[in-house]
């Protein structure tokens, strides 16, 4: 199978998943006990207002009709009206997407540039001080609740030392330096978890790779340890790490909810939370759909990268 065929196949398989996701998101509103309109407006809402909202949401149509209506809207970028923001959902989400994107990309950048070297060094020096240190970071990283580390970072670096602002957001287009200053603590908070997972995977994957017979064969061929490490072992051991980073992305988006809330950053995560708290169902649907799409697309992307790097994967799935 050629690579492009594999890509096509994976894209085709992606369609039913997307369909399922859209059905789930659509159906969310109907999981609400009683009328979603009442849930949104509260019990003291007037009958006319409830009726109006129900009409707006098309709640009296049969479900499949409602779905088709809703989904055809989604396809052309019409995600409905947000009640708490008093405006269409799509443009709100578009703004916020880029805010979260910056946070996530910064986190990826920082966490990978720490975790990959640390994982490699730990693998090469098993049971050394570096190894134990990395293990410690690993276990702490996955065990500290994001909201706790965020709060502690604020206490130390914002309140105590006043190095960085406590919270808030400045758009990079407005003032890039201020933007980055505001992003330091949120990024640091998210990085802690991301570093832990990627580093542990890098370490164990590198150890496993170095034990492979082909590494011995490379040595027997006269390759220097450095070419073996960087020319062969790194690529082989990085492949499973890419998968983990893809899955990790889901935790990052989850973490973004907490971090954006703590640091008052107007990103997608905070939007979901506000929408849930306000019972703004069109906004819940829109933001959840966008986040799921984002996560799935990243996972699909990592799968495709892996299949490109390791041709055996295509064979296995064929």
């Amino acid at each position: 199978m050629e690579w492009y065929e594999y890509v096509l196949k994976r894209l085709l398989l992606f369609v039913p998943t997307l369909f399922g996701v859209s059905v789930f998101v659509f159906y969310l509103v109907h999981l609400v006990p009683g009328s979603p309109a009442v849930a949104m407006l509260g019990v003291r809402a007037t009958e006319e207002r409830v009726q109006e909202i129900e009409r707006e949401l098309g709640l009296h149509e049969p479900l499949p009709v409602q779905y088709v209506d809703w989904f055809s809207g989604v396809l052309v970028g019409n995600l409905g009206q947000s009640y708490s923001f008093n405006g269409p959902v799509a443009p709100i989400l578009a703004d916020r997407f880029f805010v979260s994107l910056e946070l996530v990309l910064l986190t990826l950048l920082v966490s990978l540039s720490v975790s990959i070297p640390l994982g490699i060094v730990a693998a090469l020096n098993k049971n050394s001080a570096v190894d134990y240190f990395s293990m410690g970071v690993g276990i702490t990283g996955v065990s500290v609740p994001t909201f706790f580390s965020g709060v502690v970072f604020i206490a130390i670096f914002a309140v105590g030392l006043s190095w960085f602002p406590v919270s808030g957001y400045v758009a990079p287009t407005e003032d890039l330096v201020e933007n980055l200053r505001h992003m330091v603590l949120p990024t640091l908070t998210m990085t802690l978890v991301a570093v832990a997972v990627a580093m542990r995977m890098m370490r164990s994957s590198m150890i496993e790779t170095l034990g492979e017979e082909y590494i011995r064969f490379l040595k027997a061929k006269g390759l220097r340890s450095r070419s073996i490490l960087f020319g062969h072992a790194l690529k082989n051991s990085f492949i499973p790490v890419i998968t983990v980073i893809g899955l990790q992305f889901g935790y990052m988006l989850s973490g973004a909810v907490v971090v954006e809330q703590i640091f008052a950053i107007p990103g997608l995560g905070r939007t979901v939370l506000q929408a849930v708290l306000q019972r703004d169902y069109p906004l819940v649907q829109g933001s959840v759909l966008l986040l799921a799409l984002w996560f799935s697309a990243v996972n699909l992307g990592t799968d495709l990268i892996i299949s490109y790097l390791d041709p055996r994967i295509m064979e296995e799935e064929a």
Binding site: G20, L28, F249, Y251, M252, S254, Y281, A292, F295
Partner: peptide, 14 residues
């Protein structure tokens, strides 16, 4: 396909 906390929030909204 849903990040776990997002799925949780979605369900809680309902």
């Amino acid at each position: 396909a849903f990040p776990s906390l997002i799925l949780a929030l979605a369900l809680i909204s309902a």
